[in-house]
Amino acid sequence: MKLLEGKEITKHFGGLVALQNVDFDVHEGEIVGLIGPNGAGKTTLFNVITGTFPSTSGTIKFEEKNITGLKPYKICKLGIARTFQIPKPFPNMSVYENILAVSIFGCDKDKGTSNVKWDINQILEKFGLADKRETQASNLAVFELRMLEIARALATKPRLLLLDEVMAGLNPKETAQITDITRGLRDDGITILMIEHNMRATMGVSDRVIVLDQGMKIADGNPEKVCKDPQVVEAYLGEAYVED
């Protein structure tokens, strides 16, 4: 079943074309990687999906329902949660308060839309934040902040989770940990769309990869196939990766 479907999404910023006629879909239970060079329009696509700003044209459907142009808080309550590329915690709140605040506002009538019913303590436990419970978010280390971003998104009990470069700048061990968590979430019934620069990790974890370049979709398919697509190689991966 198509959980999220975008049709001919176009976004202009003044004269700059950030996205041009992008069609995409995400099926229930998938992990989809969204890749592309800097400035390809990946984060713009996330922003359009979550309603940060409206698209210039095109429609987005979530669970067959048209969500184009809805405000971010409504989209969140429908069951789409996101993380930010540069983490945006509530800095003067404790880790616990961060998650509590979001769980109060993030989903309608406490039930949420996902099958997952973790409470805050379970979320903290799962993300290794249990002993940081009372720590102010502004005092967290980079990795912990990333964990908090994902944990906080989950507190809205989403069906679809958008991860924006959650692995950027992390060491291999931390990357592996996040990869495991991502897989675990999918097994728990949450569909995932993730922007990632870490190629190995993306290719390893994704069921399908969508490639954007200069605002256009240039490839869409299973990771092995996409890797060998000459257009993708030229635009993004570089020859070294293909030989690897």
Binding site: T52, Y73, F84, P89, F90, P91, I104, C107, R152, T156
Partner: peptide
Amino acid sequence: KLGLGLRMIGESEDAAVHFGVNT
């Protein structure tokens, strides 16, 4: 909820609006 929502807006308005607060 009003007080909490205002606090979230003060902490990070972007995050607040994306996590369900009608800012």
